[in-house]
Design a binder for these strands. Structure first.
Lengths: 279, 279
DNA sequence: TTTCGAAATTAACTTTGGTCAAGAAAGCGG
DNA sequence: CCGCTTTCTTGACCAAAGTTAATTTCGAAA
């Protein structure tokens, strides 16, 4: 383990360089594959051969930087490429009756609209949370890979199934938990996911999330979200200040959020299909 | 259009034969492919070639009938086959702290645990709602198909993406609606999905669902679900009696549930990837 | 037909969360 | 530094939903 600096799209006075724990394996991956090195990291990346990693990296035909709030994908519009999130965050949002709802959050390394390859039109928007860097893969290219690379295709499929597993967990937690535990669960999930791609630190993590964003993800109001966050703070469970999440006792924190990471299919959880690791 | 009788797994005094609207196309499909004829029906079934339909039908190595409440898949246990739901209903359930939560419902024609092919272990149970008939496809067979049938593989992928789209909609509706509209939405969805596979009738549909099941799907209590259903009945929007759903004014009903079926990617909605229809 | 158990129903009371209204604090651009 | 905007915070009040506890209805099986 070694330390490495990273940048998230913060809106603070000056961009604070944070220490993120990042193994040397991970560092090598990121220098070898600067655009797609985080894809499936912490999950089945080890199942990708070097050739497959090269194929994926070279499939990105265009890299673009966006400011916060840019709509990457519009609900109902036809897509001819899919988008790899290289840096920054994105939300899956749906605006109805003048109110915004968030049904998912994506972190670096996520192939955010890979499902648009098969669905062509999405039922939601994808919006950058802070500044973000993305890479595009044309659907024609994915089409070719479907025909010539069955193993890589299976990994793509797997990655969309991870999203589905996360959706199920969100559904579960909305059914099961009150606002206080719901945020705790959400923050625990984001922390875990950032950790898998080397973007968390030992006391927490940083995002450009506002309390309103959290409210829209938890199906509550910004006002009630504020009550929940203050309660978490009052109990000494976690601090959320302007997107900066700080936790002292992680076990305790995850207990408050009723968080069990197996649904994220991390590679340490021995929960993953062995067949996918072999060609 | 012609009428055909069908059976759902009802626990009523005698199995009531209901009239279901079912096109002659659909009838032919069901007689030609009695086990898998409902797979992707109303969606991209027309994109499957006869050869592909044969391949799928012949991939079912075993057909089994189960009683109500049988656990088809157990959370965390390794799966070596995937399950086609031929007749009846199944719920995706999670039991935690002694309470049951439902994160999905499956209808005939659904390849209910296709995602287990890639994930190997699921994060939830699959339980039959009433009596059900299922068919098994070994994962070794799916593996072969991945290598030899890229187009069929893409359709399998598509079918798991439909599940994900439904999960997103459930998340959205849990965030957005109060219990009263939530049930209405849920019932509208089930109706629509049954209609796509020829198992609904013009005034509604029949299922073995109880009010407790609905409550577990809507993240509320059976008592509150009862209040919501009574309200729907009082307003003349819909009647739910022992799994029997009756609606007089469908447009009005769907409006109360804030229901828009585009997320179900039905073939009439011109919402589906044209690329998938061609090889 | 009777009996039993599951499912549905209702009421009284408590907790959680939504709404409205008003400020305070922090970040941003000049 | 100042003014402007966004984000956060708090209080008072009301509606939605959970809890507990009975009671009724219905369907299945004897």
């Amino acid at each position: 383990m070694t330390k490495v600096n990273f940048e998230t799209g913060l809106n603070g006075p000056e961009p604070i360089a944070l220490e993120a724990t990042c193994s040397s394996d991970m560092q090598k991956e990121l220098s070898d594959y600067p655009l797609t090195g985080r894809f499936l990291m912490g999950r089945l990346r080890h199942a990708m051969g070097d050739r497959e990693k090269e194929i994926l990296e070279s499939s990105i035909t265009e890299v673009v930087d966006f400011d916060k709030g840019h709509r990457l994908v519009t609900r109902g519009e036809k897509c001819n490429h899919s988008t790899m999130l290289i840096e920054g965050f994105a939300l899956r949002t749906i605006v109805e009756n003048g109110r915004r709802y968030v049904v998912g959050i994506q972190v670096p390394g996520d192939f955010v609209d890979l499902h648009a390859f098969a669905l062509k039109r999405l039922d939601h928007d994808l919006v950058t949370l802070g500044p973000a860097k993305v890479g595009y893969v044309p659907h024609s290219r994915l089409q070719d890979l479907m025909n010539s690379e069955p193993h890589l295709s299976r990994l793509f499929w797997f990655s969309t199934l991870l999203d589905a597993a996360i959706h199920r967990q969100w559904t579960l937690k909305l059914e099961q938990l009150k606002a206080y535990r719901r945020v705790a669960h959400l923050l625990a999930e984001i922390w875990y996911r950032l950790e898998m791609v080397g973007l968390a630190h030992s006391d927490g993590f940083r995002t450009p999330l506002t309390q309103t964003d959290l409210a829209d993800m938890c199906g509550t109001t910004a006002i009630h979200m504020n009550r929940a966050l203050r309660a978490l703070s009052r109990e000494g469970v976690a601090e959320f200040r302007r997107g900066n999440v700080t936790v002292t006792d992680r076990k305790n924190f995850e207990k408050h959020g009723d968080f069990n990471p197996t649904y994220l299919y991390g590679q340490g959880d021995l929960y993953i299909g062995a067949e996918l690791t072999r060609d």
